Simulated assay, not measured.
Amino acid sequence: MGLVLVLMVTVMMTVGGGGIGVAASTAEVHVVGGDNGWDISSDIAAWSADRLFRVGDHIWFAYSSGAGENIVEVGSMEELQACDVTNPIRMYTDGLDSITLDGVGTRFFASSSTDRCKKGLKLNIDVLPQQPIQFHDQMYDADDDAIATGPTTPSAAAEVFDRWVQHQQQQTWECLRIDCSLQRILHSTCIDQQRNSSMKD
């Protein structure tokens, strides 16, 4: 449980630490197996049954690598169902692995132990396209221009984005006011210098 709590904090820092942005607000983070992580007791199949995975999401595997447990990624459903881990396309061994889902399609993960795989430590993920992003009355796809208009309910991310925009606008106006004040000061100084020069002449 402690490992997963540390993982949750790490995830929040990873996703939120880069500042406010569209990509951070749309990506989901999935800790495989939930509180117990990558473990037979987690019932990985039940955990994944109702979840949606999209391009840009992150999946985290938390497991005890010291117990001889590693995770392999295989290339087909047939290999996954048979727990054939003899020809993996990738292997994860850190005990805390973050994987970014970077393309649409199906990916297959299993325990490197055939016995543990057959006991349920395996996972297939159908990765869907990115979900469109909604901002008030316009909806944008991650790669396209506006594709629909209409009233929408602002999400928490949209409200944060609005506050950020307002803050930037306030800073911009403040900079403009400062710039104008400096210009007035410089203009007044130039006039005073011209007057002093004329009086001397």
Score class of each variant (00 low, 15 high):
Val160Gly: 04
Asp145His: 05
Gln193Pro: 01
Ala27Met: 13
Met12His: 03
Gly56Pro: 12
Ala142His: 03
Tyr63Asp: 02
Gln134Thr: 13
Asp143Glu: 08
Thr93Lys: 11
Ala156Gly: 00
Ser197Thr: 10
Gly21Thr: 09
Glu79Lys: 15
Asp143Val: 06
Phe109His: 02
Asp201Arg: 15
Asp179Ala: 11
Val4Ala: 11
Lys119Met: 14
Met8Phe: 07
Arg51Tyr: 02
Ser155Thr: 15
Val160Thr: 14
Ala23Cys: 10
Arg90Glu: 11
His167Gly: 15
His58Asn: 03
Ser48Gly: 09
Leu128Ala: 15
Gln193Ile: 03
Arg107Lys: 15
Val32Cys: 14
Met1Arg: 12
Trp47Tyr: 13
Asp97Tyr: 02
Ser111Pro: 03
His136Thr: 03
Val6Pro: 04
Arg163His: 12
Pro151His: 04
Thr86Met: 15
Gly17Asn: 12
Met77Ala: 14
Lys118Phe: 07
Leu3Pro: 09
Thr93Glu: 11
Lys118Thr: 09
Val160Cys: 07
Asp102Lys: 01
Val160Ala: 13
Ala142Val: 05
Arg163Tyr: 12
Asp115Thr: 03
Pro129Cys: 14
Cys117Asp: 05
Val11Gln: 02
Val160His: 06
Ala157Thr: 02
Ile178Val: 15
Pro88Tyr: 03
Gly37Thr: 08
Lys122Leu: 09
Leu182Val: 04
Glu73Met: 14
Phe53Ala: 01
Leu3Trp: 13
Arg184Val: 06
Asp179Leu: 05
Ile147Gln: 12
Tyr140Phe: 14
Gln131Tyr: 03
Leu101Asn: 00
Ser188Gly: 11
Val160Trp: 04
Asp201Glu: 15
Val22Lys: 11
His58Ala: 04
Val31Lys: 02
Cys175Lys: 10
Gln193Glu: 01
Gly16Trp: 08
Arg51Asn: 00
Val31Arg: 01
Ala157Asp: 05
Ser197Asp: 08
